[in-house]
Structures are given as structure tokens and as C-alpha cells.
Amino acid sequence: MNRKLVLWLPFALMAALLIAFLAGLSNSPEKVIVSQMVGQPLPEFAAGPAITGQAGAATADFRDGKPRLLNVFASWCVPCVAEIPMLMELKANGAEVVGVAVHDNSTDLGRFLAENGNPYSRIGLDQGGRAQIALGSAGVPETFVVDGTGKIIYQHIGVVTEADKAKLLAMLGVTK
């Protein structure tokens, strides 16, 4: 090979590296871990009742043909508070929201629901993150859409806002 060409090789390699950096800067710095369970049947989980007077949540509850939202949340999670009014509104529009509370306890949950309202039809207290891991959920809040056949068709990561409302209702088939 030509010696001149060899001498330009480091230049080319470095230029390639710098282009990679430039591309890397446009990647989102906050890595969002998307669940691989989207498109798959809702995995088996059973989370017992979180508060007295309301049923827990389990896979079996999603097999009756009705699409539902599955909201992974926690009483210690600040953004979850902001999300409650929107979940209430979705409920008012005919959506059923099943809650799974992670790393939580009944006392704190009771206070949280009393202060912010309770949009949930059922709330499961997830023991040891089993349901969360089964769902492939990496944080709170996250909202899954489960269709009538018990399949996860969508995952929303972060707070549900006004902008997501129409899309979620359409997926649930309860457009008003």
C-alpha cells in the first residue's frame, strides 16, 4: 500500500470518530427503556389488594374481552400525582384503569388516594417488583394498554397528559 495513504488513515479514523460523537450528541441523554412485552400477551402476575375495600390486580382480570389501561405507579412518585387528574378524566370517558403500585405500602397508598383521588377500578400491591419486571416496566409512572384478548398493545412511559388522551381512548375503543 502507498505510504501516503497509510498516513492519512489516522485522519480518516478520527474524522469518523468525531462524526460518531456528533451523531451521539443528538441521541437523547436520558435513556428510556422500552418494554419488550408490547405486542405480547399480558404476562402472568397476581398483585394482592393494596388497600382495604378494593380488589387487587392479576392477569386473569384482563381476559374478559374488555380493553383496559394498566397504570404502574407509586405513592412516593411525584409525577404520579400530576397524572391522577388525567386518569380521572379517562375514567370519566369510559376507560377502565387498573393500578399496580410498586415499592409501596397500604398506609401511604391510602393517604395518596385520599389526597389525589382514586381513578382505579382495581389496585394491586406489587410485592417485590414481580409484576413490574414481568411487564418490562423500568420506572413510574408507566401506562400499558391491554386489548380485549389480553394482549399489551401499547406502552406509554411517563406522565399521561392531555396530548395522549385521544390516542389512549381510541386504543381502548371508547371514543366519545
Binding site: K31, H103, G128, G129, Q132, I133, A138, G139
Partner: peptide
Amino acid sequence: CVVCQGQPISGSNADLAGDMRRL
């Protein structure tokens, strides 16, 4: 660890990392 991201679950204090260790 999916919460703190830089660390393996064997060296993370996050709750979810603990859940994964248990599992």
C-alpha cells in the same frame, strides 16, 4: 440497572435492582 443505568444491579441501591437480584 434500568433505574440508575450506569451500574450493574449487583452494585445498585435502587429498589428495582433489588427486585431483580431477588428474582
